[in-house]
Design a protein around this nucleic acid. Sequence first.
DNA 1: TAAACCAATCTGGTTAACCAATTTATTAAT
DNA 2: ATTAATAAATTGGTTAACCAGATTGGTTTA
Lengths: 233, 233
Amino acid sequence: MRVDILTKSENREVQKQIISKLRDLINYKNLEPGDKLPSERMLSEKFGVSRSNVREVIQKLEFFGILKSRPQSGTFIADIGQIAISGMMADILRLEDPDFKSLVETRILLELKTVRLAALRRTDEDLAKMREALDAYKKKVLNGQDAVQEDLLFHLAIAQASKNSTMNTFMLIITPGIITNFEKYHVCDANLSFQGIQEHEDIYEAIKEQDPKKAKEKMKTHFKILYQYCYNV
Amino acid sequence: MRVDILTKSENREVQKQIISKLRDLINYKNLEPGDKLPSERMLSEKFGVSRSNVREVIQKLEFFGILKSRPQSGTFIADIGQIAISGMMADILRLEDPDFKSLVETRILLELKTVRLAALRRTDEDLAKMREALDAYKKKVLNGQDAVQEDLLFHLAIAQASKNSTMNTFMLIITPGIITNFEKYHVCDANLSFQGIQEHEDIYEAIKEQDPKKAKEKMKTHFKILYQYCYNV
DNA sequence: TAAACCAATCTGGTTAACCAATTTATTAAT
DNA sequence: ATTAATAAATTGGTTAACCAGATTGGTTTA
């Protein structure tokens, strides 16, 4: 059906075009929330793209909670109202790839909260996992090895202990980008990691003592250098 | 190949099983970051699942930044280290669906930050969009209509003005869940919406004046009822 | 008239064959 | 022996046919 050859980046464009056309369709046909979308076959023909492309986009919009696919039945518009659907799709089209600064900014925000919640809600099991991650980190650092991964896994253990699945998910989403950029820009060099051990221990201790205020304070200290890095570069 | 019949929820289980097996494979075969995964065909046969299932999982893990697929070449493990890969995959397996409380908690956290950043970074264009969203909200409320959607679109406009694409994305992800639950539990009844107009106007004004402190304060006021609701139910 | 049944149709999901770009292995030339 | 050229195999992506469950419309039955 399609004639042109597409590279990977162009495929992203195709997805955006489909989202755009889908939004127009919903607006034009005045489809209400809960209504059924035309079938995947219909859409692929109407938009002049492959059914796989349509399915990819549907899956993506399903992740954003805009669509809901039901086997052998159809794809339905989420019950959040037409205006919200249209507005959100416009926003999704406008989304940019996150830059490092954006990631760090978000990470600091999230972690100053998860560490508080972890101090309030942690179980003994959570504590054991954090201990394990912290020991792995210490071992690497004391061996003079790079320990960015172990560092982040400790922080992910805190996110888990916060018992907030949304923040936990978000932490997971930003982690790879953080690691990559840290290694790229050598944010954590050896002596910084060494200092990090005590800071991590302090955080762990505060969570163990179930002291949210202290936990947040220790995390703030831990992020001090990161703050500077984020707002200077 | 498969004999059993799968419902939608069981399909989720299959995806988890694939992720689990994939993690074991990476650990067992000692695959390093940057290494190539076995081909999709190979994996589907090895795991006893369809190639589509494998592709779905790869796409999901690609979203989390763990894998990277290159056409006509292969699927590669992200360059974030073996320990991080293994740890993250374990975390992803453990992820639960977000509950309402988790969503609200995260929303409040995000918005108290985006509103500050919006006050600092907003352009005139951002301001115009917020004004537009706010007017749509006011019109609905003054007509006595439900305006949950318009409410959220105003808040999404703030997220956009914050110029932090990660937080913007996260706000989009939680929005449908927020709307659904708001409508379900009637969080915003008529007189509450009426009061919301002034609160929204205050927030808008603070962002217009580029006063981050005031903006955050006004947002906090706006969330006051929400706070109570979140921590009581 | 309305409820119950049934077959034709439509649906998202799955499968397998196919495509073109890429990688690897083989051959040829220097 | 080394490099260049080339052919074979491998890859993710695409396509089209197929599957089983859901839906729909018409028909029959009480």
